[in-house]
């Protein structure tokens, strides 16, 4: 297969998933609402002292983002598995890992990117400073694609299971820990007025690593799950 047909298949699949999401656009809001809801639970649980909230805000927002990303994972492959589209991808003339990457990118655009839109609002609710909110957006921009990429491996492993949801969280959440640590610490550090270049470089490194490795692992996992 030529590079041109590979590029065309990649673009076609990306377009298809975005179109499908658009046709079911009411469902787009769900992970976003979940993200907001979980975050607003914390002040109710631990008290509304602004200093306390400011101190724990990075951790809260990032844990909520982690959970929102995890909950939305199911939709990456579920419907394609159920109607047989996934089988068609498996036997398509293009390498499966490239198709997987297109699907994960579409998934991130649909579920990951919108988190960035509401994150500043949540930052204000938790009394974060302007610098912290800027840092939060940067870390979300670099970190949430990693969550989608790693999560795709877990979904691919559990897609054939009737009750894969709980197992999925067991598989995926431990792998999310490095992102959580670097990202939440970056936001906290910027709140203290210190530079966060090191954090951002590490997150970028994680992103590069997962972009290059995760589609391969996901493709291998899908082949096993569908055999």
């Amino acid at each position: 297969m030529s590079t041109a047909s590979l590029n065309r298949a990649f673009a076609l699949l990306l377009w298809r998933d975005l179109l499908l999401a658009f046709r079911r656009r009411t469902e787009l809001l769900n992970p976003l609402l979940f993200f907001v809801l979980v975050t607003t639970l914390f002040p109710l649980g631990i008290g509304a002292d602004p200093a306390l909230l400011r101190a724990v805000a990075p951790g809260i927002i990032w844990v909520a983002a982690l959970l929102a990303a995890m909950l939305s994972l199911d939709s990456v492959f579920r419907s394609d598995f159920e109607d047989g589209s996934l089988e068609q991808f498996l036997i398509s003339a293009q390498p499966l890992s490239v198709l997987v990457l297109a699907k994960v990118i579409a998934h991130w655009l649909i579920t990951g990117l919108p988190l960035l839109i509401v994150a500043p609002l949540l930052g204000l609710l938790l009394h974060m400073s302007g610098a912290s909110i800027a840092a939060l957006l940067l870390t979300l921009l670099l970190g949430t694609p990693v969550l989608s990429l790693i999560g795709a491996i877990g979904v691919a492993l559990t897609v054939g299971l009737r009750r894969g949801g709980v197992i999925l969280s067991l598989l995926v959440l431990p792998l999310y820990i490095p992102v959580l640590i670097f990202a939440a610490d970056a936001v906290a550090t910027s709140g203290a007025g210190l530079p966060i270049t090191a954090h951002l470089s590490l997150l970028a490194a994680l992103l590069v690593l997962s972009v290059s490795l995760s589609p391969l692992a996901t493709a291998a996992a899908l082949k096993i799950s569908l055999s």
Partner: peptide, 22 residues
């Protein structure tokens, strides 16, 4: 399937270890 998961885990262990140290 578990073999894939174990391999993904083994790639991640050094990263997790380093991030926890940090």
């Amino acid at each position: 399937a578990t073999a894939i998961l174990a391999i993904v885990g083994v790639v991640n262990i050094p990263i997790i270890h380093y991030s926890v140290e940090w």
